[in-house]
Design a protein around this nucleic acid. Structure first.
Length: 470
DNA sequence: TCTGGGGTCCTAGGACCC
DNA sequence: TCTGGGGTCCTAGGACCC
């Protein structure tokens, strides 16, 4: 999908169409998630500090991400991809590989092109947004193709033309070559893909290590036989928070770690997982980042266990100077817990008589989620009694007013909310301001971008190469 | 007003085991 | 009569991706 988050917001908010839109964290330490193409013309791009974006494009609209909306649109797009092939590999909410050959939806250049264009039409019809398609014989080339096709385009890379196409491109075009590897290669005198191929595998392995060097050499030759994999197992679950101002108080740091542990366990349980290794992440005032981990005797999804492990790990970290970010994660995932094992063992030991005891060996699995006293009352003494206006009415979120109907928050503060009354199908709307506690005004769920989810497209076509839409 | 959040994969050293 | 070889697990850090 093209500039996905920003494009979705423009589709939802008629007055923003054709205007620079920046989606990302709006706090003092926020960064840009997505900039619309209009905003990119000012030099704004993903991962840029929001403060810098505001200097470059002071008149852009700045919005927080609304993942529920993006997830809804993403599901619509993934459903369309699923009609092309059972082999769909999502990379994120807005990007996926499709193995057209496995789906029988293309068998040569012409049928692949037809499938790609049909997909783009369907995406536009169903979501109201544009996507770009790269068609090629491998994942790497399909991805590079889709990147070049953006925005709102389609590119097919004819088999046999890969090397000549890649040769003059920057090494940074290849997946897996970021700032660090790019720098290494530049210092070694290599800036283009052709120069990588010339250097040879041995040289690249010497420079970058075994795995990275070897795979990069193959990519430089246009070789990539990685399969499209539809079901991938989750390996870790983590949550982290960057604080608006550094934390200095040790007690506060500890409280935040416990909160994060609870949030992490919530997500872990929601996914039906448990894990053996607890990881604490700390970013200090100077941006130096460290992790500490502890592996338990068996997998757990118990909030107390994770909280305590994270707390122990915190003991070994020097936080003088201040803490910028804290994170808690769980890896070594399983779909059972150690309590399950105990229960199983107990049941096996004493077959009939002992079923109640076996059940009580896993006492709080059903009683959960337990409201943790530590996280509730022990929490930040300096916390606001009520959420500030910006939190109650986040910029960009949908609202509904009893009299004026559907709109979205343009800004809030000083106990006031400014709302623009418009919705996906409407003309650009007018702005009105209300008191934050106006009972007529309530936050609402995102409206669909397209009125009736059209059901036009049909699966079809015999097939051949891989494609990626992004 | 410098630098998010959620992931994946790789490397390297030490412990431990046979 | 200095210090084998190979495998796995754990820990920490780094690069990269969206």
């Amino acid at each position: 999908m093209d500039a996905f988050f920003a494009a979705a917001e423009q589709a939802a908010k008629p007055s923003l169409r054709g205007k620079p839109v920046v989606v990302g964290g709006l706090g003092p330490r926020g960064v840009v998630s997505t900039a619309s193409y209009e905003a990119r013309r000012f030099g704004v791009h993903s991962a840029m500090p929001m403060a810098q974006a505001r200097r470059l494009a002071p008149n852009a609209a700045y919005l927080v991400p609304r993942f529920s909306l993006y997830r809804t649109v993403s599901e619509q797009v993934m459903e369309l991809l699923g009609r092309l092939s059972p082999l769909v590999e999502p990379l994120s909410l807005d990007e996926a590989f499709v193995d057209l050959e496995a789906g029988g939806s293309a068998h040569d250049t012409a049928s692949a092109l037809a499938a790609g264009e049909r997909l783009r039409r369907d995406i536009r019809a169903v979501t109201g947004l544009t996507g770009s398609v790269g068609l090629a014989g491998s994942k790497m080339l399909a991805k590079i193709g889709s990147e070049q096709a953006k925005p709102d385009g389609l590119i097919l890379i004819e088999p046999g033309t890969e090397r000549e196409l890649l040769g003059p491109m920057s090494v940074r075009t290849l997946p897996g070559v970021g700032p660090a590897t790019g720098g290494h290669l530049r210092r070694a005198g290599m800036t283009t893909v052709a120069e990588l191929a010339e250097a040879g595998e041995d040289e690249l392995v010497r420079l970058l290590g075994k795995a990275h060097g070897a795979s990069l050499y193959r990519m430089a030759l246009g070789h990539d036989d990685r399969p499209v994999v539809s079901e991938r197992e989750t390996k870790s679950v983590s949550v982290e928070d960057t604080f608006d101002v550094d934390l200095h108080d040790r007690v506060r740091v500890r409280v935040e770690v416990e909160r994060l542990a609870d949030r992490c366990v919530q997500r872990l349980r929601a996914a039906g997982h448990s894990g053996r290794t607890v990881v604490l992440k700390v970013r200090r005032y100077d941006f130096s980042t460290l992790t500490r981990s502890e592996t338990l005797r068996g997998p757990t999804d118990d909030p107390g266990m994770v909280r305590e492990a994270a707390g122990r790990l915190l003991e070994s970290v020097d936080t003088t100077g201040g803490v910028r970010l804290l994170g808690v994660g769980v890896t070594g995932l399983a779909d059972f817990t150690q309590e399950d094992l105990f229960a199983q063992a107990a049941a096996a030991e004493q077959p009939a008589a002992d079923i109640p005891a076996a059940a009580s060996a896993a006492p709080d699995r059903t009683a959960e989620p337990a409201p943790s006293p530590a996280a509730e009352d022990g929490s930040a003494p300096d916390r606001e009694p009520e959420a500030p206006d910006e939190r109650r009415f986040p910029a960009g979120h949908d609202v509904r007013h009893a009299e004026y109907g559907a709109g979205w928050v343009q800004g809030s503060g000083l106990r006031r909310v400014t709302v623009r009354f418009e919705e996906p199908g409407s003309a650009p709307g007018r702005v009105r301001t209300f008191w934050v506690d106006d009972p007529e005004l309530v936050l609402s769920e995102p409206l669909p971008l397209v009125p009736e989810p059209t059901d036009s497209a049909r699966a079809s076509g015999p097939g051949s190469p891989s494609s990626q839409s992004s």
